[in-house]
Design a binder for these strands. Structure first.
Lengths: 209, 209
DNA sequence: TGCGTAATACTCGTCTGCGAGTACTCGTAG
DNA sequence: CTACGAGTACTCGCAGACGAGTATTACGCA
C-alpha cells in the first residue's frame, strides 16, 4: 500500500484549485481550463467526477453544501481538508523530487524504428522535427506575451518545456544528419534487409542477446 | 474512431516479439524481459493477457495451437497476422512521427512548485538532480558495455535517453543556480508568503489570469 | 416573442488496467 | 522418496478511466 490513494493527476489539479476556495466540480474544470492548465493535463470530463468522489472518500476534500440555484441540478460544493493540503504538498514534492518512471513514448518508437526501413524512418523523423520546432516557437511566443503580466516563477514550467523541446529537436536533428549523410554505420545493410528481408552475415551474434 | 484499437503500449511490445515467431503470452513476456525491454515499459502481468486477447479480437494476432505439454495448463500459441504487421509498422510510425501529447509529470510539478516554499523546492530539486546524474551515468555505462556487441542503430534509444536526461539535468542545475544565487526575482516575497501567508501588494493584477 | 444554439452541470455504462491469487511442475537437499 | 521452494503459466475480479449522452438554462437575434 505505497501508492497514492488517488493516483490520477487530475486529482492534483483539483486540489490545486480547491486549495484557494471551495468549488463545485464543474467550476474546478472551468477554472483549470481558463488558466490554461488544460494544456498540461487535458481534462477528461468522465474522470472529473470519479476523481472528486475519490478525493472525498479518502478525506482530502469534503462536501460543504448543495446549492440548488435556480432549477439546475444541484451542485455540490467541495472544500479542501487539512489532510488534503498535506496530500497536495506531498504530491508536488514527489513530482518535483523524483524522475518520471515511465519513459516517453518516443523512446519506445525509437527502439523499434528498424521496422520502418531507412527512408520512412527519415521522413517520419523530419515530421517530428517540424512539430518540435513549431511547438518551441509557439511556447516562446506565449512566454513573451505572458512575461510582462506575471512573475517569472509562475511561468517556470513553460521555460522548462521550451528547454526540453529544444533539446529533443537538437537530438533529432543530429540523428537525422547522421542518417542522411551516411555517417551512421549499417545503412546499406538496413535498407537491404528492409527491401529484401536478407540479414547481413554477422547477424547471429547479437540476435540472441 | 481515430484512436488505436488496442491502446496499451504493451500491445506494441507484444507485436514486436511475435513478429519474429509465434509464441504464447508468457513466453512473450519472458523474451521481452530478457531483452531488457522491461526497462522501457514495465510489464504488467495482469495486462498481458487482456492485451493479447484484445489483439486477437481485432485480428492482429491469431491462435495457432493449444499445446498441452505435460500436465501444465495448456498454453495458447499466437501468431501475427498481416493486419498485425501493418498495425505494428503504423504504430511505430506514429510513435516516431508525432510528439507525445501528454507532457511529463515533472512539468505539472513545476507549475505548482510554489506551494513548497523556496527551501523545500530547492532541496527537492537537488534530489532530482542527483537522480538524473545517476541515471545518465548508468545509461552511459550500459551503453559502453553493449557497444561492442551490437550495431549502433540497435542502441539508438539509449543514446536518446542519455541526451534527454542530460538536458534535463542541465536545466535543473541552471534553475537551481538561479534560485540559490538570488538571481531569481521574487524569492523574498515567495518565502514571506510561504511562512506567513502574506501576499505581496502587486498580487491582485495576475491572480485573475 | 419565439427559436435555435451555446453553455452548464452532470450521469451512465463500458472497457481497460492490473494486483493478487492459484495451481501445477520440476529440481534438489535432506 | 519426499517435502519444499522456485519457477511457470495463467485467472479473477475490482476499481478506475473516460466517451458519449442528457437535461436544463441562458442568450442572441430575427
Amino acid at each position: 500500500m505505497k501508492r497514492r490513494k488517488v493516483g490520477n493527476l487530475l486529482g492534483l489539479a483539483v486540489l490545486s484549485v480547491v486549495v484557494e476556495r471551495p468549488m463545485h466540480p464543474y467550476e474546478m474544470a472551468a477554472v483549470l481550463k481558463e488558466r490554461g492548465k488544460d494544456a498540461d493535463l487535458p481534462i477528461k470530463w468522465g474522470s472529473l467526477y470519479t476523481v472528486v468522489a475519490n478525493l472525498e472518500k479518502h478525506g482530502f476534500v469534503e462536501a460543504v453544501e448543495s446549492v440548488k440555484d435556480g432549477g439546475r441540478p444541484e451542485r455540490t460544493v467541495y472544500r479542501i481538508t487539512p489532510a488534503g493540503r498535506v496530500e497536495f504538498e506531498d504530491w508536488v514534492r514527489e513530482l518535483v523530487g523524483t524522475v518520471d518512471p515511465e519513459p516517453p513514448r518516443f523512446r519506445s518508437g525509437l527502439s523499434m524504428i528498424g521496422v520502418l526501413g531507412p527512408d520512412q524512418a527519415i521522413s517520419r523523423l523530419r515530421e517530428r522535427l517540424e512539430q518540435l520546432d513549431e511547438r518551441a516557437g509557439k511556447q516562446r511566443a506565449a512566454l513573451d506575451q505572458l512575461r510582462p503580466l506575471m512573475p517569472r516563477m509562475f511561468l517556470i514550467e513553460v521555460e522548462y518545456d521550451i528547454a526540453m523541446t529544444e533539446a529533443e529537436a537538437r537530438w533529432v536533428r543530429g540523428f537525422l544528419d547522421e542518417l542522411t549523410s551516411g555517417a551512421m554505420p549499417g545503412m546499406t545493410a538496413w535498407r537491404r534487409w528492409y527491401e529484401t528481408g536478407e540479414l547481413p552475415d554477422d547477424f547471429g551474434e547479437f540476435v540472441e542477446k
